[in-house]
């Protein structure tokens, strides 16, 4: 099977596109001799084909879900059909309460993300620019970073009660380390040679920071931001679910204990769509900010 499929991976030189249309199988040539250039199968149509296939995949998923539910493999009060869930989702979208719940989640997310990114930027820059601090903090950062953020939920609840503040402690923790590490790597990447060159041209400290450190570190920071945004959303909904501060996560738990399965599944779909939007949004920001600097765009190599 592998030797078959690798065919399509074969690239051809130059700006021409790889073959996609009928392919040799089992040594039998798919195209008869002397037919000349094959029609169609242009890149545009291939993109259309991908989109169509992807759409079919979504339809297939919905259909599988529907059949699975109709066959009652699982108790129907635990697994509503896709259509029931979809109808419920539309109904939720018409409810003002849904939007205020969503708003709660988004506010917690945005606050947590802003605090994490802000703190990490300031601390990361200070630590990154002072070699002594870098060496002194390395072991501590490496120790604190892998601590699972949910481990501090009980502590957060103890200190701040069942509140948004408690949720924020949890939401800030993991993205903070993510961005901090990216900032540290970004500043470390500022080529010492380039820095020396800049110094020899008489750039002051502030100018060096502006013309050298920032452009080099920015791609790392933006990537850190993208990852942090996704993690913060996950933690926002997690903390709502576990701590019980208002938001989509708490509503999901309420629907579970009701039990209101269609509502539960509808909100799970909402969280997926929310995550998708955040991912697409931050990727678009990344592309916009870094379009001038594609060569340095990469994630922390470890």
């Amino acid at each position: 099977m592998l030797s078959e499929t690798v065919t399509s991976m074969t690239t051809v030189p130059g700006p021409v596109a790889p073959e996609q249309a009928p392919r040799a199988r089992d040594g039998v040539r798919a195209t008869p001799r002397g037919t000349g250039p094959r029609p169609s199968a242009r890149p545009r149509s291939r993109r259309t084909r991908r989109a169509v296939l992807g759409f079919l995949g979504v339809l297939g998923f919905a259909a599988t879900w529907e059949l699975f539910a109709l066959a009652e493999v699982v108790n129907p009060s635990y697994l509503p059909s896709f259509t029931t869930t979809a109808r419920r989702l539309v109904a939720e979208l018409g409810e003002p309460r849904f939007w205020s719940t969503l708003g709660d989640t988004l506010i917690t997310w945005a606050l947590g993300l802003a605090i994490a990114v802000g703190a990490a930027l300031v601390l990361g820059t200070v630590i990154g620019l002072v070699p002594f601090l870098r060496r002194a903090t390395h072991s501590t950062v490496e120790f604190l970073r892998p601590i699972p953020s949910v481990a501090i939920i009980p502590l957060a609840v103890l200190v701040a009660g069942l509140s948004r503040e408690a949720a924020l402690i949890v939401v800030v923790y993991a993205p903070f380390w993510q961005v901090l590490i990216q900032v540290l790597y970004g500043i470390a990447d500022v080529n010492t040679v380039a820095r020396d060159t800049a110094r020899s041209f008489g750039l002051g400290r502030a100018q060096r920071l502006r013309h050298l450190v920032l452009p080099t570190a920015l791609p790392y920071v933006i990537t850190g931001f993208r990852l942090a945004a996704a993690i913060a959303l996950v933690l926002t909904i997690t903390s709502e679910l576990v701590i019980g501060n208002p938001g989509i996560g708490r509503q999901i738990d309420l629907y579970r204990s009701a039990p209101d399965a269609p509502g539960l599944y509808a909100l799970v779909l909402v969280t997926g769509l929310l995550g998708l939007l955040v991912n697409l949004g931050t990727r678009a920001i990344e592309r916009r900010v870094l379009h001038w600097h594609p060569s340095v765009r990469r994630e922390t190599p470890r």
Binding site: T10, V12, E19, V28, R29, A30, R33, G36, P37
Partner: peptide, 22 residues
């Protein structure tokens, strides 16, 4: 790539030891 059987030619043939290379 055509000679080594990695890429199908649009037309024409490559034969090795009397057998067509596909």
């Amino acid at each position: 790539k055509c000679v080594s059987g990695l890429l199908p030619p649009t037309s024409g043939t490559v034969t090795l030891d009397g057998a067509e290379v596909t």
